[in-house]
Design a protein around this nucleic acid. Structure first.
Lengths: 106, 106
DNA sequence: AGATTTGATCGGTGAATGGCGATGAACATG
DNA sequence: CATGTTCATCGCCATTCACCGATCAAATCT
């Protein structure tokens, strides 16, 4: 993953409402979970929620599955794992690069 | 760490320039590393870089240490570790709450 | 003291973001 | 076909962001 991608995803995660949406989806994942459900769980207008959902979609963090007149959303676990790896790599890379001592015991 | 804090840090990380700055600091950590150095490593004006640095400062990701007429910056490893933990928890929490083994109710 | 260097901050500008209500497409159902 | 649902999208507006040049305070060096 490139820095731009990481930054993109981070920005998508950089809003409390979007975190709430993800958490809500996670808690409901087994069931149907449409935009209306998410909207009900938040003090925001439907259009606003839809907009946030779009951001998460564009970041590839969730997935849309049309289902009749409503859309079912679910978290993309694969991407989440990918992100976890990338983020771990980022943190790792930000660690002290040149150990001024012996490396920590493995 | 609450969602607001996480979102805050995510937003700070949600810009490629800020990632670059962090990486640069990481690569230079043992040496002196002032705003000018960072600016030289980027195609941006000094004021812009200073702004980005401020964002990272406010997010608690870096630390400023005045040193003569210049300021030395360094990554806050403690906060980085903290963030790693919080992020891991976030990903964990976003995982399927119910095991997808087989005990999956309809 | 005067000159120089560093870098944070100010003011301004254009783009992006976050919020809303309204509209309209797509689908189900009477 | 008509009606009702769902929800993505479209203005619209206020706020924030990203960038810049200019300025100014503080520390350092003649």
């Amino acid at each position: 993953m490139h820095d731009d991608d990481i930054a993109n995803i981070m920005r998508a995660l950089g809003h409390p409402v979007r975190l709430s949406i993800l958490r809500f989806l996670a808690s409901q994942q087994q069931r149907e979970c449409c935009c209306g459900d998410v909207t009900e769980s938040l003090p925001l207008a439907q259009s606003t929620v839809s907009q946030h959902i779009k951001v998460l979609l564009d970041a590839g963090l969730i997935e849309r599955k049309p289902h009749g007149t409503r859309n079912r959303y679910m978290i993309r676990q694969d991407r989440l794992a990918e992100l976890g790896t990338a983020f771990g790599g980022l943190i790792e890379g930000l660690n002290l690069r040149a150990p001024h001592k012996e490396a920590e015991p493995a």
